[in-house]
């Protein structure tokens, strides 16, 4: 539910500002159109379910930055990371878990050279962890997350850049279980290494 509400709010925000075109070049608020797509290499750590009982596979991420206020950019994004179970005693006899998140973020563009930018950012989002074995569904967990990181963009063409980045992602998932396992299933921490393309 949190996942869908957050997505709806950001779509509404985006639609509202998409109709407010800049009337003067001096306006600090501008419509932006940076679109990133990247491969995502997750590295989970800590004493928690995703780190100890699962193995992360290569994920995919997308981000659309739609509004620019001075050098700050507002955007929305989506990440998908598949996991495979490695400890049946903690996961149940369930092969896979799919981590999906929709988030909003604020980035700040720092121009280093004509071709090189650095963009630190932070963001908040909703997430869903779906448990499945082949086509069989074993329920899901929902929660929220916080991210902080940066991307380094290198201009390849007029409207195309390549980028690499690193991000810390901390998640909190809803869980009801025996007290000694609450922290294990409630928390998730990871570093994400991103490599991809930006169309601007």
């Amino acid at each position: 539910m949190k996942f869908k509400v957050l997505f709806f709010l950001f779509c509404s925000f985006f639609l509202q500002f998409s109709y407010s075109q800049e009337t003067e070049n001096k306006s600090p608020v501008k419509f932006n159109h940076d679109f990133r797509i990247n491969a995502l290499i997750p590295s989970n750590y800590g004493d928690n379910f995703l780190a100890k009982a699962n193995d992360a596979k290569l994920g995919i991420g997308m981000n659309f930055s739609f509004l620019r206020i001075y050098d700050f950019k507002l955007g929305i994004g989506y990440d998908y990371i598949p996991y495979s179970s490695t400890d049946i005693s903690m996961t149940g006899n369930i092969k896979n878990a799919d981590y999906q998140t929709v988030y909003g973020d604020v980035a700040y563009e720092i121009k280093i050279t004509d071709k090189l930018n650095i963009e630190p950012y932070f963001g908040f989002g909703g997430l869903e962890l779906k448990f499945r074995s082949d086509a069989r569904d074993f329920g899901n967990q929902t929660g929220s997350n916080f991210r902080i990181g940066f991307n380094t963009d290198y201009k390849l063409a007029k409207r195309l850049s390549g980028f690499i980045g690193i991000c810390y992602l901390g998640s909190k998932l809803d869980i009801s279980t025996s007290p000694e396992f609450v922290s294990f299933y409630h928390n998730a921490k990871m570093f994400q290494f991103n490599i991809g393309l930006k169309i601007h």
């Binding site: 962890l129 779906k130 448990f131 069989r136 074993f138 329920g139 899901n140 967990q141 929902t142 998932l173 809803d174 869980i175 009801s176 279980t177 025996s178 396992f181 299933y185």
Partner: peptide, 12 residues
Amino acid sequence: CEIQYDGETRIV
């Protein structure tokens, strides 16, 4: 026929 599970509740 499939049993439905609650992913947010874990029993031990």
